[in-house]
Design a protein around this nucleic acid. Structure first.
Lengths: 168, 168
DNA sequence: TATTGTTATACTCTATAACTATA
DNA sequence: TATAGTTATAGAGTATAACAATA
């Protein structure tokens, strides 16, 4: 990597490493907080947060999996844990008997509300404390476009990110 | 999170989510490639890459752990895997008999050289393809400063504390 | 005593494949 | 046949604590 790196100049390489490192450190920090403060993994928090944001606090398993980028079985596992703790409920959908609707319970909402302040506090402290207004605008703009691009790029393996099952 | 989020404005929230998502998608993509192309996890690749960059291709276990931000035992586990595959060697340090020096082997260097082109290709395709020169300069500058800040921030109470004090 | 690293162990998480049931 | 989800299972990875050796 001290070499030209066969396609990335040193400025790109630096930005790439910084992005990976910042993302990792940030995730590590918030994950630590969520576990200590709410006994939640980051994934579990994301699931709950999505539900809290959803109309009626309800989403199909598949929609959740699409968002969290998990295998179905992985989501079933996590949903099982959240269900056991009374943070969500699961019931067959009325529209489509194959589907399962996941709903946040009051306890789930309360837990999210409880950990959210500390969560955003960490984020602000780590990510935004050292940024100017211009930095924030620039970062948001650039990363927003990058994200859109990433989502648009067809996955190499040519299958939808949602259910990536190797060989079905 | 549809609420004011108790401390982050919507611009900050958007930047935060974009950062997490971009970082995750990027890591997922390169990890997938490294496994398919070199049977390496991202962590293993990082270890090898650091060694390739180090003088004489050698580093102490502790220095590696510091860089990769893992527990010692985790690094020992990963080093064991790489050692078994002949990609690194381990030997007691001459300076300090407690230390273990890790060295990349020729096979290790070859493997890194083999996967690197595809690796950077993915990064360019996903991360840089949609960015302008100005974007790159801005992103590198901002994230570089954020990383320095994150590294400088004293880690919150490690863990043993039940209720975290020391809010600043 | 503090530091370096390994080992033993337990646990979390994720993915694959086989399965059921609905469409 | 295709889709939605669960289950069984297996494997990778990580953290903790106990440990040995060296400083």
């Amino acid at each position: 990597m001290s070499e030209p790196a066969a396609g990335l100049n040193s400025e790109q390489l630096g930005a790439y490493f910084a992005l990976i490192e910042v993302g990792s450190l940030l995730q590590y920090a918030v994950d630590e907080h969520l576990r200590a403060d709410g006994d939640l993994s980051y994934v579990q928090f994301q699931i709950l947060a999505r539900l809290v944001d959803a109309p009626d606090g309800r989403l199909r398993m598949t929609d959740l999996a699409d968002g969290v980028v998990y295998s179905r079985s992985g989501l079933t596992y996590q949903a099982g844990l959240l269900d056991k703790r009374g943070l969500i409920t699961r019931a067959p959908s009325a529209d489509d008997e194959r589907s399962v609707m996941v709903t946040v319970t009051g306890a789930g909402r309360e837990l999210v509300a409880r950990v959210l302040p500390g969560h955003v506090e960490r984020v602000r402290e780590l990510l935004f404390a050292s940024m100017t207004e211009a930095d924030l605008a620039g970062l948001g703009s650039i990363l927003g476009r990058v994200r859109d691009h990433m989502r648009a790029v067809p996955p190499r393996s040519a299958k939808p990110r949602a259910g990536r099952k190797r060989t079905g």
